[in-house]
């Protein structure tokens, strides 16, 4: 009699527990990213020179940038990609519709990719602290001053419709990177930062996917 009761009570608890416990699963989703520009209407993309603001660098930015962007765009876009060494004297030219219409007369499905660049560097001294160790050090090392080379890349990027000369998309980037090596070359650092800009720009223009985590629930 008593054994029966205990058995039944245990059974009731078991059933109640199985009903109440909600199971869940974490799931990783690759979610689409909305694009800010409809590039599908263009057959040709012409990468034009960028206007250099305060150019004091010891390497040629425009040839390096045009080659890099055309190579990257060719891989990701099924369009005719070309470069054009258009001379840009000032930043106001980006808003000059007649100037851009004259660069590709009669080409309706063409867009120019261009913009302005400000690339600077500076050496800063920073106080570098030692990380805490697990055990007490009888001879603790002091914080020390160390030099870091900082490179800053500011880019304004424009997509211009060759048929109308209008700026159809405009975006800005500001990347800063620090290097422990005080002799880091400007050209090396430039490609580090341009790569980051490219990732962001392409995500805006071409879309892509981002990983997100969500929960699936069974009860």
């Amino acid at each position: 009699m008593k054994r029966n009761r205990i058995f039944l009570i245990l059974l009731i608890f078991l059933v109640l527990y199985s009903c109440k416990t909600g199971n869940y699963w974490k799931i990783k989703l690759e979610l689409p990213v909305k694009t800010s520009l409809d590039i599908s209407r263009f057959k040709n993309i012409v990468i034009a020179n960028f206007f250099l603001i305060d150019d004091k660098n010891d390497f040629e930015i425009n040839p390096a940038l045009l080659e890099y962007l055309s190579s990257e765009l060719s891989q990701d876009l099924d369009k005719n990609i070309s470069t054009n060494n258009i001379a840009l004297d000032n930043e106001e030219l980006f808003q000059n519709k007649d100037f851009w219409k004259g660069q590709a007369p009669g080409e309706d499905a063409t867009a120019f990719l261009t913009g302005s660049i400000e690339y600077t560097s500076e050496t800063r001294k920073a106080l570098i602290g030692k990380s805490k160790k697990q055990f007490d050090n009888p001879f603790p090392s002091k914080n020390r001053l160390a030099s870091r080379k900082f490179y800053n890349l500011k880019m304004n990027v424009y997509f211009i419709n060759a048929a109308t000369g209008e700026v159809i998309y405009e975006t800005k980037f500001n990347e800063t990177q620090a290097y422990e090596n005080p002799n880091q070359t400007a050209e090396f650092a430039f490609f580090d930062q341009v790569h980051k800009v490219k990732e962001k720009l392409f995500r805006q223009v071409l879309g892509g996917e981002r990983i997100q985590q969500r929960y699936l629930i069974s009860k």
């Binding site: 869940y24 979610l31 975006t171 980037f173 805006q204 997100q212 969500r214 929960y215 629930i217």
Partner: peptide
């Protein structure tokens, strides 16, 4: 339900952010 709350919060954050331009983020 904390899992549903979490999903909805992340959902709102992600899709709102996706609408913002990278320019605003920078």
């Amino acid at each position: 339900n904390e899992h549903i709350q979490s999903n909805y919060t992340k959902f709102k954050k992600y899709w709102k952010e996706s609408e913002k331009t990278e320019e605003e983020k920078d």
